[in-house]
Amino acid sequence: MTDGIISKGFTGRRRNSGLDKRDRIPPGQYETDQFPVLSAGPTPRVSLDRWTFKVSGKGIETLEWNWKEFLALPQETFTVDIHCVTKWTKLDTGWKGVSLDTVFSKLNLLSAPNLQYIVAKDVTGYTANLPLKDVINGKAWIVHEFDGKTLSADHGGPARLLVPHLYLWKSVKWLNEIILTENDQPGFWESVGYHNYGDPFLEQRYRGD
């Protein structure tokens, strides 16, 4: 991080955030109050009466929820920082949704110890891959409310994955399926030059970082 040549005449504009806050902004990121949108294509509109979410995997039973059943699952509200690979970080974002621990508790994962990765899919076919250990033990949710309001379509509504400790492209918008897999299968951005894991504090933006 300390390498790099001095940019002549550049002073920068450090935000007057406290030390604790500064520690929460990963290298190369800047803090924003906005909520920018990044998607590879048009925003799909998914109606709630046709919304479903499915979990499947080799050797385990496939489970599916409709919107009403999904809302009947135990809900959590929580506040986290989020980091987009396009360089913005938004602190203290408030969400409501279902922990993936709740979802996985309905499956007998112990019977399939070989399933150590997941592929998260959206309604358009977009995918992201994650190690299973990164989406259990309180690290990942399926969220449907942001800042106390219904999650808008451009931010992934009706419901998106949220894995705040990794760059936000892992938090698949318009989520409709999670597949547990034996092998790590690179997803959409992971296949076009982005990092396979995406830890913002290690600045794992691109392949090889």
């Binding site: 300390t2 040549i5 001095i6 920068g12 990121q29 360089k87």
Partner: peptide, 16 residues
């Protein structure tokens, strides 16, 4: 591309 600027005190920013 990503551009990285560094101030004299080591403060850095990046943008695309």
């Amino acid at each position: 591309i990503d551009i990285r600027l560094t101030a004299e005190d080591g403060y850095q920013v990046e943008r695309s």
